[in-house]
């Protein structure tokens, strides 16, 4: 809501800043008008700065919680991946379709992290269109609906309000495992948290039962056939939880950065406008003085 309201103001602000020398050189009548306009713009930019600063503070406090959740969930995910690493499981290169689960969220105002995911998907679609999409979160849905609506099989909303819970992840995993199509492999796409300013769209593999039984080191484990689907479902939920929590932490940190940049841009602009305002006011006063003095001199002569 903020961005849309703010953009015209920013545009108007830059336009006015570019037109500054003209404004100063203009006649006095014009200066009276611009003075009030500048004052109005200053006021609105100050309000925007206040809003972005508050949002930055909110994001910072949420970020610490999100990062803690991320570290915990990473343990979950990596422990459950450990089995597959030991068994040397590889995704099957079959004829069957692949399924990709994209973990974004419902909220924007956090820079380009959602479009990073969408771009990755679009690049994959151009190479090989043989996969279906499950999309978590409204933002990526809105972006991918335009480019590839036919690939989407499921979409989830309501993600990103709070730190994701395991209940979220397991409910999604349930719904995904109920899909009618057989997929040769399932991959979870999420934003990997590298540091506070950089993220990278990354895949986690969630293997199908066939892939697990065909893994080279599978004999090292004693697994009954009946428990195998359970393992698959549970590890899908684990991977989803990891991806959701890490994606959430990335989003909060990206939002914090975006809001910080917006605040500093706003304060830059406030500085510029303040100078412009002072100069214009000075010009108006000087102009008035000149008028009074010349008027007085003229009447003294007469």
């Amino acid at each position: 809501m903020l961005s849309r309201a703010a953009r015209p103001v920013f545009k108007a602000g830059t336009a006015a800043a570019a037109a500054r020398p003209v404004a100063i050189g203009a006649t006095n009548a014009a200066n009276y008008a611009t003075l009030r306009e500048i004052e109005g713009r200053l006021k609105s930019i100050r309000n925007i700065e206040k809003i972005t600063k508050t949002m930055k503070i909110v994001a910072s406090t949420k970020l610490t919680r999100a990062q803690r959740a991320m570290n915990e969930s990473r343990n979950y995910g990596q422990t459950s991946q450990e089995v597959y690493e030991q068994a040397e499981t590889k995704p099957l290169e079959g004829e069957n379709k692949k399924l990709i689960i994209v973990c974004s969220s419902d909220k924007g105002l956090c820079g380009g992290i959602h479009s990073g995911l969408s771009r990755k998907i679009r690049a994959l679609l151009q190479q090989n269109a043989n996969f279906d999409l499950v999309i978590l979160g409204e933002k990526c849905k809105a972006q991918l609906v335009r480019s590839s609506p036919k690939s989407i099989v499921l979409s989830f909303a309501g993600i990103g309000k709070d730190v994701p819970t395991f209940a979220d992840a397991s409910a999604i995993a349930d719904q995904v495992s109920l899909l009618p199509t057989e997929y040769s492999s399932v991959q979870v796409l999420y934003n990997k948290f590298i540091n506070a300013t950089s993220y990278e769209p990354t895949f986690i593999d969630a293997f199908s039962e066939d892939a697990i039984t065909q893994s080279p080191n599978f004999a090292a484990y004693e697994i009954e056939d009946e428990t195998l689907p359970n393992l698959r479902e549970y590890s899908l939920a684990n991977s989803l939880y990891w991806a959701l929590a890490e994606g959430h932490a990335c989003e909060q940190s990206a939002r914090r950065n975006a809001m910080e940049n917006a605040s500093s841009n706003a304060s830059d602009m406030i500085g510029k406008f303040q100078i412009l305002y002072n100069r214009t006011r000075q010009a108006v006063i000087t102009g008035e003085l000149v008028e009074i003095i010349t008027g007085a001199a003229a009447s003294a002569d007469a």
Binding site: V145, K150, I152, L154, T165, F166, A167, D168
Partner: peptide, 19 residues
């Protein structure tokens, strides 16, 4: 921690189903 308020929609042929 056990709360879950997700909504979902099934898609067919590029059309979003009911939420």
């Amino acid at each position: 921690r056990g709360e879950m308020e997700l909504r979902f929609a099934k898609w067919e042929n590029g059309k979003q189903g009911e939420n």
